[in-house]
Simulated assay, not measured.
Amino acid sequence: MGRTNEFYTRLCAEVGKQVVGQEEAIRLIAAALLAEGHVLLEDVPGTGKTTLAKALAHAFDTRFTRVQATPDLLPQDLLGGLVYQPHSGEFILRKGPIFTQFLLFDEINRATPRTASALLEAMAEGQISLDGLTEKLEEPFFVIATQNPIESQGVFPLPEAQLDRFLVKVRLGYPTRGQEAQILRRFRSDTEPETPLAVLTPEQLGESRLACRAVRLSGDVEGYLLDLLRATREEENFLIGASPRAGLALVAIAQAFAWLDGRDYVVPDDVKQGVIPVLSHRMQVTPERRARGMTEERALTELLSRIPVPSELESRPV
């Protein structure tokens, strides 16, 4: 499994041609892609969400489409529609921008709920239904949606059903002082940043996904994961606990983390790394806890500190 680490190293190098830092975000997005999930990229404006998504699209040898969400964007603008052909007397499907492999849906919370929900079937089942016609989407189909969490005007909060379709939520955060100095120097230069080269073809991605599914989960690590899920449903901090689908997502991302680290088995740290990005957007703290400043991320961090962790030796499958 040595080529796994090489893949991640090459991915960071290529994306780094346009993005400074953000290795953890790149790792998390790569893991989500390997785990056959979609990514919600959330942070304040100007932190490089769109730049990162576009750089990643170049690094994967797939067809890329970007859609800018606006309040007047209609479902048919995303999906397409049936168009009448007078010469044949038939209707043909005019495919919309969703018929791609790597879709960047910029500022998803600016789209109306009706338009945003048009993504639900595509993200969950890899197909769309339009005027009685069901059309499969080309594999791989991968969505990165961005949103600004602090705006309140002209935005529509995503409902729980929509949030649940995203395998992980990724926050970029601000760069360090050294990284910001590098950003200033790079973008004040007259030299255009290099375009990332593709490091993974669709065929290689399919093989890598199969390898991730084959990563083993010992009984002790499975028990640890189940204890975490159960605790979210019993903790007083949470109004809504983790669903069984969230548990499946946590297993998938842990397997992807293990594969990226060159292992064919999951260790507890793989599970712990996935808890906040996989569960925080699927759960809610109670109104009382929120009024005291509690967030989903903080509540999950406290929960992780209380659940006993199996040892590395116990994590190895027999």
Rank of each mutant, 00 (worst) to 15 (best):
Q153G: 06
F187C: 04
I253A: 08
R188V: 05
Q153H: 07
A254W: 07
T176F: 12
E194N: 00
G262I: 10
T301G: 11
A254Q: 07
L73D: 04
F238C: 07
G206T: 14
V251T: 11
H58E: 10
A181H: 03
A214H: 10
E42G: 08
Q127V: 00
Q147C: 10
R289T: 05
V20T: 12
D72F: 07
T232F: 03
Q101E: 11
F187D: 06
G178Y: 06
Q204T: 03
G89P: 12
P268E: 04
E235K: 13
L93Q: 09
L300I: 10
S88C: 02
E296Y: 04
Q162E: 12
L56D: 00
T191W: 00
G81A: 05
I29Q: 00
F156H: 14
L133Q: 11
R298V: 14
S152F: 13
G274A: 15
I29P: 04
E236N: 12
S218C: 09
Q204K: 12
D43N: 08
N237A: 15
R177W: 15
S218E: 07
G274N: 06
G154P: 06
K17V: 09
D77I: 11
L104E: 04
A145L: 01
A116P: 09
L228R: 09
E314F: 08
N148K: 05
V271T: 09
L34N: 03
S218N: 13
Q255D: 02
D264G: 05
E107P: 05
L303R: 04
Q147G: 10
T146Y: 09
A53N: 01
I150K: 03
F257W: 14
M283S: 07
M294E: 15
F91N: 08
S208R: 14
E23L: 12
R185I: 11
I108Q: 10
